[in-house]
Design a protein around this nucleic acid. Structure first.
Lengths: 134, 134
DNA sequence: ATATGGCTTCCAGTGACTGTAACGTCAAGG
DNA sequence: CCTTGACGTTACAGTCACTGGAAGCCATAT
């Protein structure tokens, strides 16, 4: 299977698949004309990578997960530990974003948003008193 | 004020401040010995940048916000529009992360996490049926 | 005189792609 | 046989916002 077909099947851009080969995540065969040739096994791996990346695992996490996936003797505890760690990072990021959201929407609420120059958002960013005037 | 002091005051690493100068966000004076010299005005700008970045605005957003901040004739509507757009992006990211969190924690819940190789997390990533066995 | 710590510049690396250029290959149509 | 267009190949540069490190200058205390 050519890279275009593979890309359509797994949802990853062809460029990304080539990049994954570059960094050794996947090693497709080659046909006589030099085209990459993806087998069913390769497609499984690509789908795996697509899902793992979609869940926010880093490339290095994916490399580890792939090797665990291929190691039929792995302990599921290892995978679970990685997933838990990743969940922690996700929670952390969500909280960060929520804090930004809270602060910024507070500022937005205070801003009438008209043609006048007085702007509580800029005042807030400048560290000034945002409760004044607006 | 030297860069070290400036860094301590605004919370941005000295390296970052130098980078901001590189890309033209801030233009400190120089003393005779070649050291950067930050005035009160510069410090206000740095604090502004620190807060804006802390709220997740991109560097280019910050550049625009700074210029709006310095333009006493700006319309607050312009700022509000930028902030709203940014809030949308924040919400979008939060939703993305929450979707990852939901999927991944579902998989984690299904995984007993012991020494046995059977692992619903990997099965889920592989696209297999995760409701089996575990 | 020296040790230290802070300052300077410049260059390279990060993560995970993405864009672009320049070229080779393949199947279909004229 | 030739062309066209879609697909494939490589290699290199660019993205974003820093961050690390090397090599050297400056200031102060001992």
């Amino acid at each position: 299977m050519n890279i275009g077909q593979a890309s359509a099947n797994c949802g990853l851009p062809a460029k990304t698949i080539r990049y994954y080969e570059d960094i050794g995540l996947i090693l497709p065969d080659r046909t006589d004309n030099g085209y990459r040739d993806f087998s069913e096994t390769h497609m499984h791996k690509l789908a795996f990578l697509s899902r793992a990346r979609g869940l926010g695992f880093t490339i290095e996490d994916c490399r580890t997960l792939l090797s665990l996936y291929e190691d039929t003797d792995r302990a599921s505890a290892d995978v679970k530990a990685m997933a838990r760690e990743h969940l922690d990072k996700i929670s952390y990021k969500i909280n960060e974003l929520k804090a930004m959201q809270a602060t910024l929407s507070e500022l937005v609420d205070k801003c009438h948003g008209d043609d006048r120059p007085n702007c509580p958002i800029l005042q807030g960013l400048a560290g000034g008193n945002t409760t004044s005037g607006c």
